[in-house]
Design a binder for these strands. Structure first.
Length: 909
RNA sequence: GCGCGAUUAGCUCAGGGGUAGAGCACCUGCUUCACACGCAGGGAGUCGCUGGUUCAAAUCCAGCAUCGCGCACCA
């Protein structure tokens, strides 16, 4: 059966070979015709030109663990993969390349030629991240891979646009939007990130019109952070309750440049405390100002070009200047005019473009907007846990956002994306596009909105804009399964709604919330039942991983060095539910090492060698519950416990606990104790029946551990499964297809017998620890062969062979009532008194000191317990179990104290 | 400003009303025939601070501090 296993585990070839075999055998395919219970996940599609980072590793390992576990639980699993076209990010990359290599802009090429370039780039780089996911071991159904700009998928986008337009939920309007002067497009509110900035607060003064007196003009002082927008000011505003300025409302001030008279208006949103209590109103460049402008019928003067430079409204002095240069210049000019009063340092929040990382410019522009559909249903689904969020605290954030939901600006002034399916009749196009608002009701015959282009396309002009990338992502859970012109496909019928969604909380609004609304709108139900929000992967210092900080190791390098299994296991072991994970990076001699991954690799190696040890034992196991040793009973009981604990942890998606449970059981229990305690069964003179029983126990434990561990470390477990020949005749070809056992190993074995065995084993192991400790205290190396004498003191201790094996003693003598020489080291244990007679080592003083320390500990413990038990309130109010435990503890320390006192006395004075 | 997290050993983190835990790092010893990616032993913590509830608080409650994250039209 088995092939020989090498000494150290080498993950490289093992991992890639198994992945190919699984894939070729179709193990990842979700069968829509299966009778089995369905389990499905759609992958959060990574950017098509993206590169795998540790966030992906965390996210996709969780999905793979869930998918693999579900398969082994006998479910029909579909993990549907794909990529996202990522409009801004991808277009920016290609534009950058174009600029660098050909010194051209996208406009030099024109729309069609540019898009060709992007598709080329996509073909070249689009597969990278997919290959990287495969290297991680992800069991996605690659036959169903989707891309958000696939033809079928794009059709969906047009269809829903048409639906929503006809329903009146999509409209076009001139509105204040977030404008990115670098990407030259509008953004949604979610794509703006507020960052605190150190800036200046400029105090300037405007002349009040017609209030000239003998003392000179009357001045109105105004504070602003943006003097560069002054040319667009069409009013100043004060709070109507502000007594300082009450007489000025309705009058005007003189805007210094370009010189003009602008009104003083009242608005209750003005904060009396801020600055001077006077606000300069620039309706074209501030959302709040815009509203004041609308209310007061103010003129809207846009002073910037799309790229953030000042336009002709700034006058010749300012025209062409960048907005930040203009700020300095405006301040200087005010200074010259004697109208700059003072400048203060000031920290405020400035909105930045998420992708381009430059301050966004609030700007009036013509855009397409969406009023979200099915908001109430989507909010309720999460509120009442039909869709279960984990951790639950995200419910609140979600509810808050859904509550204050704003229309979504869905048009982008980009070329890479889904072009808006709206056509304007050629001769009317300019007029239509100039309309301040446009919706289904007002559309008329000169506007065409449809999935297919109009029949006489040459007579129409298509809207230039494309749709926000997230406007395609929100259909992902079902648009990947069914074409929009068809009834739900067999795949959808089987696998939708999906079971789990695993994603980062950063995209709760971008993606999760919108998918829920889309699910209700187009499928009439929720798109997934559970959402697991992962944490963020940070470096050892708690900083977010980022390219610019250079603290983001390449997972592929880590995999090459330590193996995918090691990386997966270590990430899972340090990823508690919903908390950020710190990925440590240490430096050793100029080389980066990753302590957590080292642990994972060590664990893989431990597993490898423990299995190799089993294989080195000749012979077949014979499993007979009646023949099990107490040690076998103990480890099998712990195995049953492990499986129970794991089932519970899976219920709560506690992956770190799952990994830790496996680690502790296998290394801490099975390797550290069971394997050592059973070594005697492989001695030449051992009883063949014991050996066969132990081998059977080892096989059972290894089998079940490989099954349980497989979702976390799929490659090594599959390799070992094959090496050990655990595949059953006629059974599944792979471990990954093997169902998990549904019965406990010790089912049907007398519980009392198991409990007694476990108690006995516990006593032996504890005694072993004390004996080892005794040896170490006296400077004897752990492999030093020594003689020990055990006085069982009435206990029925008979496990001398195992004791000897575990302690590394050469000889164990059982002698009731043994009288030791003075100064012979001794320890008290549940199995009796252990003596370590050492020729030439007897040292009465040293032993007295050692025993003295133990005695002191026993006395202090006894004191603690006594003070508890003498507290009447405790005895009367604490539960009996606690009181009884306390009494037992008292007895234990009392006896121990007495014994120790006797031992000290025996040493003499 | 409002809301949500976090704060436990040098580091990364579990735990969670009734004797403070793991791994790494550290110290000592060990080339023991599965594994030095290992084995044995050891030291190490007023569980952020202050109050409260309780027989009992690291754990529950309140306040505070520090860090982080959302949300918010103080220019």
């Amino acid at each position: 059966m088995a092939t020989e296993i090498s000494k150290g585990y080498q993950p490289g070839d093992v991992e890639t070979q198994w992945y190919s075999r699984w894939e070729e055998a179709g193990c990842f395919r979700g069968n829509e015709n299966s009778d089995k219970e369905a389990y499905s996940i759609v992958i959060p599609p990574p950017n098509v030109t993206g590169i795998l980072h540790l966030g992906h590793v965390l996210n996709n390992t969780i999905q793979d663990v869930l998918a693999r576990r579900a398969r082994m639980e006998g479910k029909e699993v579909l993990w549907l993969p794909g990529t996202d076209h990522a409009g801004i990010a991808t277009q920016a990359k290609v534009e950058q390349k174009l600029r660098k290599e050909e010194k051209k802009t996208r406009r030099d090429l024109g729309r069609d030629a540019f898009l060709e370039k992007v598709w080329e780039w996509k073909e070249e780089h689009g597969g990278i991240i997919i290959e990287q996911l495969k290297r991680m071991g992800c069991s996605c159904d690659w036959s169903r891979e989707r891309f958000t700009m696939d033809e079928d998928y794009s059709r969906w986008i047009s269809k829903i646009f048409v639906d929503l337009f006809k329903e009146g939920l999509i409209y076009r309007g001139k509105r204040m939007v977030n404008w990115c002067p670098k990407s030259l497009t509008a953004l949604s509110d979610e794509e703006v990130i507020m960052k605190p900035q150190k800036s200046k607060l400029y105090y300037m003064r405007y002349k009040v019109a017609g209030e000239e007196s003998a003392d000179g003009p009357r001045w109105l002082e105004i504070a602003t952070t943006r003097p560069e927008t002054l040319m667009g000011d069409t009013a100043v505003a004060v709070n109507p309750k502000d007594e300082r300025y009450a007489d000025l409302i309705g009058k005007s001030v003189i805007r210094p440049f370009p010189r003009a008279e602008i009104p003083i208006v009242a608005d209750e949103h003005i904060d009396l405390e801020f600055g001077t209590g006077v606000l300069k109103v620039t309706p074209a460049h501030d959302k709040a100002d815009f509203e004041i402008g609308v209310k007061n019928n103010l003129e809207i003067i846009d002073v910037f070009n799309p790229d953030g430079t000042v336009n002709e409204h700034g006058g010749p002095e300012f025209e062409g200047l960048d907005r930040f240069e203009a700020r300095t210049k405006a301040a200087e000019k005010l200074e010259e005019m004697g109208q700059l009063v003072k400048v203060e340092d000031y920290e405020n929040n400035v909105g930045f473009s998420e992708r381009a990382d430059v301050p966004i410019e609030p700007r009036i522009s013509m855009q397409w907007f969406l009023k979200y559909p099915c908001v109430e249903e989507a909010a309720a689904a999460v509120e009442n846990d039909e869709i279960h969020f984990r951790p639950e605290r995200w419910k609140k954030t979600y509810a808050h956002w859904m509550n204050g939901i704003q229309d979504w600006c869905i048009s982008r002034q980009l070329w890479w994306g889904h072009q808006i399916p709206v056509w304007y009749r050629k001769d009317k196009a300019d007029a239509l596009q100039a309309l301040e608002s446009l919706d289904a009701e007002g559309a008329g015959d000169d506007l065409y909105v449809g999935i297919e282009p109009p029949a006489d396309e040459e007579n129409w002009v298509r809207d230039d804009d494309v749709l926000d990338t997230w406007f395609s992502s929100w259909l992902w859970p079902f648009a990947t399964m069914t074409n929009c012109d068809e009834d739900p496909s067999a795949t959808e019928k089987k696998f939708f709604p999906t079971t789990d969604l695993v994603t980062a909380p950063e995209i709760l609004f971008f993606w999760v919330a919108r998918m829920i609304m889309a699910g209700y709108r187009w499928r009439g139900e929720l798109p997934f039942k559970n959402v697991y929000f992962t944490g963020i992967v940070r470096d050892g210092k708690g900083r977010k991983m980022s390219k610019s900080l250079g603290n983001s190791p390449d997972p592929l390098n880590i995999i090459a060095e330590y193996g995918a299994d090691a990386l997966r296991f270590s990430v899972m072991r340090t990823a508690p539910l919903g908390a950020d994970i710190r990925f440590e990076i240490a430096n050793e001699g100029g080389k980066e090492i990753y302590p957590q991954v080292v642990e994972g690799r060590n664990f893989a190696n431990k597993l490898w060698n423990a299995v190799r040890y089993r294989q080195m034992q000749e012979g077949e196991g014979v499993f007979d519950t009646d023949a099990l040793s107490i040690y076998s009973l103990d480890i099998l009981a712990k195995l049953d416990r492990l499986e129970k604990d794991m089932a519970a942890a899976y219920e709560d998606y506690r992956f770190n606990e799952l990994a830790q449970l496996l680690y502790d059981f296998f290394w801490g229990q099975y390797c550290a104790w069971y394997l050592e305690s059973s070594k005697g069964d492989f001695a030449e003179d051992a009883d063949p029946a014991s050996k066969a029983s132990t081998l059977a126990t080892m096989d059972l434990v290894i089998k079940r551990v490989l099954l349980a561990l497989h979702p976390f470390m799929p490659h090594i477990t599959e390799e070992l499964w094959e090496n050990l020949g655990y595949r059953e005749e006629g059974g599944p070809e792979f471990l990954m297809q093997t169902p998990l056992p549904t019965t406990a190993v010790l089912a049907g074995v007398d519980e009392k017998r198991v409990a007694a065995a476990q108690a006995q084993v516990k006593d032996v192991y504890e005694a072993v620890s004390r004996a080892r400790n005794l040896k170490a205290e006296y400077g004897l190396s752990s492999n030093k062969s020594v003689k020990m004498i055990i006085d069982p003191e009435g206990s029925d201790f008979s496990e001398t062979d195992v004791f000897q094996q575990l302690v590394g003693a050469g000889e164990i003598v059982l002698e009731a009532g043994h009288k030791a020489e003075k100064g012979v080291p001794a320890a008290l244990t549940a199995i009796g008194k252990i003596f370590l007679p050492l020729e030439g080592f007897i040292d009465v003083d040293a032993e007295r000191e050692r025993l003295g320390k133990e005695l002191a500990k026993a006395e202090s413990e006894l004191k603690k317990v006594n003070s508890k038990l003498s507290n009447e309130n405790f005895v009367s109010r604490a539960p009996d179990s606690v009181v009884n435990e306390m009494k037992e503890r008292k007895k234990h320390w009392q006896e121990r104290g007495e014994e120790l006192t006797k031992m000290v006395d025996n040493l003499g004075g």
